[in-house]
Design a protein around this nucleic acid. Sequence first.
RNA 1: GGGCAUGUAGCUCAGUUGGAUAGAGCGUCAGAUUCCGGUUCUGAAUGUCGGGGGUUCGAGUCCCUCCAUGCUCGCCA
Length: 590
Amino acid sequence: MLRIAQTLEAQLRAAMQQAFPEADGELNPALGPASKPEFGDFQANGALALAKPLKQAPRQIAAAIVEQLRNSPEFSALAEAPDIAGPGFINITLKPSVLAAEVRQRIGDPRLGVAAVEQAEAPVIVDFSSPNIAKEMHVGHLRSTIIGDCLARVLEFRGHQVLRLNHVGDWGTQFGMLITHLKQVAPEALNTADAIDLGDLVAFYREAKKRFDDDEAFQTTSREEVVKLQGGDATSLKAWGLLCDQSRREFQKIYDRLDIRLSERGESFYNPQLPAVVDDLRDSGLLVTDEGAGCVFLEGVVGKEGKPLPLIVQKSDGGFNYATTDLAAIRYRLGAAGDGAERVIYVTDAGQAAHFAGVFQVAKRAGWVPAAASLEHVPFGLVQGDDGKKLKTRAGDTVRLKDLLDEAVERAQADLRRRLEEEERQESDSFIDQVATTVGLAAVKYADLSTNRITNYQFSFERMLALTGNTAPYLLYAVVRISGIARKGGALDGELPEQLVFEEPQEWALIRQLLQLDAVISEVESDLLPNRLCTYLFELSQSFNRFYDQVPVLKADEPMRSSRLALCRLAADTLKLGLSLLGIPSLERM
RNA sequence: GGGCAUGUAGCUCAGUUGGAUAGAGCGUCAGAUUCCGGUUCUGAAUGUCGGGGGUUCGAGUCCCUCCAUGCUCGCCA
C-alpha cells in the first residue's frame, strides 16, 4: 500500500495548497497509518500543525482540506468521503473495490507487491557474526549472526547487492598468545593439520590468555610473535593457516545448520593495507604520537581529566590493533579500488558503540567516506539468563552455540513426541526429526529477532518454544493450518473468480493486514529493526486465525469460496515470505 | 568521575516524523466447539510510562535535573 499512501500524500498536499495558498512551503499532510482500525486506513494530522500559523481552529482547517478532497475525482476514486475527528484528524478509509484490486494484484506475484530497488547500484555490506579463530562459537555470537543474516535477507529481497562479510578475528595479539603457548606445550599443532581437536585448542587458548594476563615475559614473547606474524614469517604463517582452517570448518557446521551464508574476509585480509592507513593519517595531519603510540585524538569526546580521548592506530611496539584494521576495512569497503559500497552495516554488541563512533569519526575526517556513503553500527544488547545476568551454564561457563542449538531441538522434539502420544498420532522418525529441527532452530531465531535488538534480551527455552503467544511455533502453525485447507480440497492455486467478493469484517481485517507488507519491509530496510517484521507477522497470524475461526472457507458458496481461498493463498505466501526473511523455513505439517 | 544505553501491567516485551481513551503476549478469571488441525477464538481485571520540572494546542516520545541498572573510558577484539 506504499504506492497508495504516496498518491494520497500528494493529493492531500495539493488539497492543502488549494485551501491555504498563503501557507505554502510549510504544508505537510503528516499522513500515516490509522492508529486504530475504526479510524479507517490512514490518518492525516497536518491540519493541527497549521492552527498556529494560520490562526484558525484546527477543525476548521481540516474541514477546508476535506472540502478540497471531496471535489477531487482522483481522491474519490481511491477513498470514501473523509471524516474529521477529535481535534482535527482527517481519517481516510479506502474503498473496498480498491482494496480488493490490490489483493488481486498480489496473488501469484512472487514479490507480493514489494517493489525492488530501481537498479543494482553500489553494494551494501553487512558485517556480522565475526567469531574468533581458535575459539568455539558461543552464545555471544548468536545475536550478531541471526540479526545480521535477517538484515542481509531483507536487503537482498529489496534487490540490493549485498556483501555478507564475516570479519573473523584471525589476526592480532590473540594469535601471538596462542602460538607462543602452543610452541611450548603442543608444538605438533603448529605444523600438522588437526593434530589436536578444537576443544583442546579452546582449552589452550584459555591457558594462553591466563598466562598473558599474569606473566610479563610471556606477554613480551607473544607481542613479538604477533609482529613476526604480521611481518610474514613463514613458520608463524603456516601455524596460523592450520589453526584458521580448523576453526573455519567448525564455524561452517553452525552456519550450515542455521542456513546462513557468509563470505569470510577476516582481519588478516587488511594486514597489507595497515601501514598505508597510518601513513595516510600522518599525511592528512591527523596522526599524533603520544606516549610512543600513534594516535588520532577524537573531537567531542573527552576522557579522564578532561583530556581528549585518542584512537590508537599504532601501538608503541610498532604493531597495529583493531582500530587500524577497522579503519583499513572502511577505506577498502568504501573506496573505488575496493568494494565501492554505499552502505556498510556493522552488527555487533552495543558495548562497541564508542569504538565504532571513534573509528567512523576518524574515517570521515580522513576523507575516506564519500558524501553518499553511510556507515551504520547496528548495536544489540546482551543475552541474559532467567536471572537477568549474562547467560552462563550451570557450571558458570560460556554457553557454546552448538549446545544451545542442540538443546532447543531436543526440547522441541520431546514436546512434539509428547503431543503425538496425547493425540495418538503416528509419525515417522524422519518427520519428527525434521519438524523438531525446524521448530527448535526457528524458535531460537525468532525469539532473538522479535525483541527490539537494542535492549538486553532474556533467553528462555520455555518461552521461545511455547505454542501460544508471539513465538515461532505460533506463526508456523498458522501456515500449517492453511496447508490443511489445501489438503482438504481447497486448491489454493486455482483460477481466480471473475470478481473477488469479501463481506465479513474478519476478511477485511486480514486484507488490510496483508497489504501492509511492503510498508513493513521498507521500514526494516531503513531502521534495521527486525522486530518490526516479527510484530507484523504475529499480527498477521492473529488476523488469519480469527478469520479461520469465524469464517468458513471450504463450506462457503461461490464466489465467496474462491475469494476466501485466494485470501488463504495470499496469507500463506505472505507468512512464508516473511518467515524466510527472518531465516526461518516453513512447514506443511507439524 | 566522564560518556553511552536502558527503566512502560505480576512476568516478557511493543509503542514508526510528538497526535485521539498507553498496547500485545504469558499468567489469572469467565466463556465459545455439528466446522477447513482448539497449538484456536470471544470477553474481563491489571499502569504514578523510574521521580520531579520544562517546551507544546497536545509528551511514553523532545529539553533539564535527580534516582536505579548495565556497558564503556590509551596501546585486547
